[in-house]
């Protein structure tokens, strides 16, 4: 039965032979939108041309605005951070009694963390963070 079915299908799809359009132009001039193609090329060349000046502008902004702004911000920030580092040194040697009072909502531990000793958070810093338990 299947043999006959396949034969029937073969005949059905192949009896027509090759399409009579097979040797015709696939892109007949009437199908080609020349104006659209030219517009596409024009837009592309304009974009590439335009980007040259824009690249120069943003290169200038990078070196004349961004880099000095970064340096101007970095210098005072580094100075402040160095001061903070001195303060942290002092904090590290503070006895527990002088450490600021810990309220109930601070250092919440409902169960142990699964890393380290189970009490320290991921970015724990012993000189600025302290978990005082009575």
């Amino acid at each position: 039965m299947f043999k006959r079915l396949t034969q029937r299908q073969f005949v059905r799809f192949n009896s027509l032979g090759v399409s009579k359009h097979i040797n015709e132009a696939a892109f007949h001039p009437s199908k080609i939108n020349k104006a659209a193609g030219e517009a596409f090329v024009k837009e592309y060349t304009e974009k590439v041309h335009h980007s040259e000046a824009v690249t120069k502008l943003w290169k200038r902004i990078t070196y004349i605005v961004a880099v000095p702004a970064l340096i101007a911000t970095a210098i005072p920030v580094i100075n402040i951070e160095l001061k903070h580092a001195k303060h942290r040194e002092h904090l590290a040697h503070l006895p527990d009694e002088e450490w600021p009072v810990q309220y109930d909502y601070q250092n919440i531990r409902s169960r142990n963390f699964w890393w380290g000793d189970g009490d320290k958070t991921l970015f724990w810093n012993s000189s600025v963070n302290r978990h005082i338990t009575e």
Partner: peptide, 19 residues
């Protein structure tokens, strides 16, 4: 400031890439 600067350098790279 670093993120604002990265926006600038990114635009610089983008237009250079298109050019």
């Amino acid at each position: 400031m670093m993120l604002l600067a990265s926006g600038v350098t990114m635009t610089y790279a983008h237009h250079a890439l298109m050019n």
